[in-house]
Design a protein around this nucleic acid. Sequence first.
DNA 1: GCATTAACCACAG
DNA 2: CTGTGGTTAATGC
Length: 226
Amino acid sequence: MKNASCTVCMLKSKAARSLQHSELDLLGESCVQAVFEPGETIFKQGALSSNIIYLQTGLVKLTIKGPQRVQIMRLKKAPSYLGVPTTMGDKINHYSAIAVERCTACFIDINTFKELLKVNPAFSYEIMLELCRNELEQYQRCVKLVQNQVYGRLAANLLIFANEIYNSNEYDLPLNRNDLADLVCTSRETVSRLLAELAKESIIEVEGKHIRILDNERLENISEKG
DNA sequence: GCATTAACCACAG
DNA sequence: CTGTGGTTAATGC
């Protein structure tokens, strides 16, 4: 862990770029940077939280304990802020953030964060924008999970990896089959079967964790219709 | 009834 | 950790 100098940071968020010099210094004083290896917990459900986390690089999963088992709410790619709702909304974290790929993250003291929200409207606006977009994405994901069949849910998530996370039709899944199942709300076995099925139909190519989308059109069709 | 979907269990690489 | 087969329960013609 090291103290960050936000003034010269090349990975500043859009929000932080709207801060004045003095405000960046303030941010830097209360900001600590840390690296997380895959599988390491960045913050934990149930624990007391007094930080907002700015994810500079990497990919995390947000998980929450359900009545039956742990659910992956969503994946979140850097750059983004983590834990704003759970740190501002309550003392205790309502969900956990776990690194899926190697991550670098800045821990910002909640009081400093609140102060910046108060004194700099441009900063607040950017944060607000990110929160709103998150909420819209969550609503979309929610209806999809509730109303689509597994086949469509899996297809949708394969497309999200391609279009929103890796920007490529070919990528290595950062999750094992079990996590992928938790993300799509199904069982590990079903994920295995459906991936094999999609491969048999020549819609995708699967080699372990390596995925290559061959027929984008059909995959999107499946994603929509379930 | 019969077909489909998907979960759970068990077992083998 | 993953893939596969068998079984079973729920749902929809």
